[in-house]
Amino acid sequence: MMSSSKICVVVISGSLERLQMAAMVASVAAVSGSEVLVFFSMNALPHFIKGRTVKAAHEGEMGALMASKKVPEFKTLFEQAVELGDAKIFPCSMAMDVLGIEEKDLEDYLEKATGLTKFLHDGQDGQVWTF
């Protein structure tokens, strides 16, 4: 699919609402003809460690409601953004160092560890969405 625009999604929050909204933006943009670059750092990244069972905590009313309904899981949406659309997801190399993890510890649909220098360079001509 030809990309007509570039969208960068920076996710640092570990809260359910923010992860969900970021996943929605990334997945819908990726299947609608945009090139999507996602960057996970801070509290967002631990959710993408393989085998993790801790659920993302909700911030408020909507998150609590979503947790009780069949909304698509944010991890499924991020994976669909990669598989069905033109998205690449980069784990922050600093966050990986702090967590003491390697690429093999993260979900398979994530790209190689990336630093801010590269992400800022790759995304400089795109819209930036921050969660």
């Binding site: 929605m24 819908v28 069949k70 909304v71 698509p72 669909q80 069905l84």
Partner: peptide, 17 residues
């Protein structure tokens, strides 16, 4: 049915592929 936006859209795109 039972899912929420953008679940049905993504399911449709998967079948479309």
């Amino acid at each position: 049915r039972g899912s929420f936006c953008p679940g049905p859209l993504m399911e449709m795109i998967a079948v479309l592929k």
